[in-house]
């Protein structure tokens, strides 16, 4: 419990610092959003009125707390370019990105752990070279290129799906998932290779420990040692790695959404970056950052459950 409270307070402090940095980062930008919205020929009084309306004429700290409070309440501010609440713009896009992230995370976990265990059990020199080579090869393919390959092979040659013909989950769940499998796999495949590599070396480190030899000498089968003793220890560092993966997958989905023309937050984020629509960029960055911090918090808790020794420190 004390561990939980300690981690939870760190979580809150981290979120606070991130929000402050995200806010300040967009304050130091050269250029004036008001001039951008009204054009350079706007009169000074019109600019002043808009500043008043947007609340840009108040001190920075006041604006920060104002922004933070409304952010927590779910009000992400107004887009400069679309004159629309950012929350409304994100409402139908964020769930799609979240589901893509969730699906590819699921694939990563479901595939990497069994494959990692299999690869970890193989110890001969030849299998080592073979497994490492395949792993390195797969890790070297950027996710967005796997996506393009998937579009070409399954879209243009086998015609399993039509690239660009996205069906929203509000229309049909089965068609939605059918379309999402390929982008989710594209993100997951390099991550699977990395996790397998990690789990494999973790298993090998465990297998060399004394308790394995002792268990062997007491007549336990290799299989039961692997399942009952080695895996429990070997999976612990993998938890942390998967938490890092969850963050990478979220940013990876920004790229993959472009490849498969998925209407998630990606396009909005990119047009906002090029259009200097800072409230939108700010909201998306803070949401992604908060998600990463929360995932790390959950990983810390799981870590502690898996390895009670951590609590002592």
């Amino acid at each position: 419990m004390r561990y939980f409270i300690k981690k939870f307070s760190t979580l809150i402090i981290t979120l606070f610092i991130i929000s402050l940095l995200a806010f300040l980062a967009f304050q130091i930008i050269p250029g004036d959003p008001v001039t951008q919205m009204l054009g350079t020929e706007a009169t000074e009084s019109a600019k002043e009125a808009l500043r008043e309306q947007l609340g840009l004429n108040r001190p920075v700290l006041v604006r920060y707390f104002d922004w933070l409070l409304s952010f927590i309440r779910g009000d992400f501010g107004m887009s400069y370019n679309y004159r629309m609440p950012v929350g409304e713009m994100l409402a139908d896009k964020l769930p799609i990105t979240m589901m893509l992230t969730g699906l590819s995370f699921l694939f990563t976990v479901v595939f990497s752990i069994p494959i990692g265990i299999l690869a970890g059990s193989a110890k001969s020199k030849k299998s080592d070279v073979a497994i490492t080579s395949v792993n390195q090869m797969v890790m070297s393919i950027p996710a967005f290129f796997i996506g393009i390959l998937a579009c070409y092979v399954f879209g243009n040659i086998f015609r399993v799906f039509i690239p660009g013909n996205f069906v929203s989950y509000t229309v049909s769940w089965s068609q939605f998932l059918g379309y999402m499998i390929f982008p989710a796999l594209s993100i997951a495949i390099p991550r699977i290779a990395m996790t397998v590599r990690m789990l494999r070396s973790s298993i090998h480190t465990e297998l060399e420990k004394d308790y394995v030899r002792t268990a062997r000498s007491r007549g336990n089968s290799y299989r039961s040692i692997m399942m009952r003793h080695v895996l429990q220890n070997a999976l612990i560092p993998v938890i942390t790695f998967l938490a890092v993966s969850a963050a990478e997958i979220m940013t990876g989905s920004i790229v993959i959404e472009q490849v498969f023309a998925i209407p998630g937050i990606s396009r909005l984020l990119l047009t906002s970056i090029t259009g200097r629509d800072y409230p939108v960029v700010q909201a998306i960055v803070v949401i992604i950052a908060a998600w990463i911090v929360i995932v790390n918090f959950i990983a810390d808790l799981l870590y502690q459950l898996a390895d009670p020794r951590i609590r002592m420190q």
Binding site: M250, I273, T274, V285
Partner: peptide, 21 residues
């Protein structure tokens, strides 16, 4: 530590959106 906790791609996006591409 806190910088490496975030994917560098995300932070690069923030810097690019502030400085331009």
């Amino acid at each position: 530590d806190s910088i490496t906790a975030f994917p560098s791609f995300l932070l690069a996006l923030v810097i690019i959106s502030i400085m331009g591409s």
